[in-house]
Design a protein around this nucleic acid. Sequence first.
DNA 1: TCGACATATGCTGATCGTCGTCTTATCATG
DNA 2: CATGATAAGACGACGATCAGCATATGTCGA
Lengths: 107, 107
Amino acid sequence: MQEPTLLLLTALADAPRHGYALIKEVEDISSGRIRLRTGTLYAALSRLQQEGWVHVVGEDVVDGRHRRYYALTGAGADVLAMEMERLRATLREADRRLRLRAGEVTA
Amino acid sequence: MQEPTLLLLTALADAPRHGYALIKEVEDISSGRIRLRTGTLYAALSRLQQEGWVHVVGEDVVDGRHRRYYALTGAGADVLAMEMERLRATLREADRRLRLRAGEVTA
DNA sequence: TCGACATATGCTGATCGTCGTCTTATCATG
DNA sequence: CATGATAAGACGACGATCAGCATATGTCGA
């Protein structure tokens, strides 16, 4: 799983959100580093829906603009949690190795 | 940066290694989940060399098999450390949101 | 001794996710 | 009345990874 997809699931983890709000949320979570393009977003959302990790929980119209709300499913939350556990393990290992390296002559 | 590349840098973080050893090392770090294909490995290594994050530190012949050793450069170690910091931040945020979700009715 | 397996490097074509760009539309600001 | 923010979505290109192939040596069991 790539970072944009991961951030998207994270953005949906606490509450349902609509497309544009997700772009802003991901930008926020990543401290402005990741600005999802709409193409990336909607492609990812339809992929994640197919996987059963995300589903549409409602649509409404606010100020004449139609909004579709997406939410994480239970399965989606599980996948996110597992993904986090994998990252945690990699992180631990990388830290350990970088500390080992600290004692050496760097190239 | 994708997971295979990240694991590759991690595998090189503490000591120089040759191609085949890197495949084994990455498999080990990822608890057997990620088995780098040789195509992925050597493509990634040449990309990382171009970036200046990895360099060749020597070649030798052991039991008739020639080995080429790759090592992380100082710049490569910096990039890995930065990447880890980013992941740490995402991890914290995802954890927080998943905990918030725990109090809700899951879909 | 012959096939299977591990070690070792490297290439090629296909797949898949993301990026960049485009379209359509409404509302607020200047 | 043009511009920019908000809002949804599609499409082609690109790049990293995957799957599989080629090539070669050493070891081990049948």
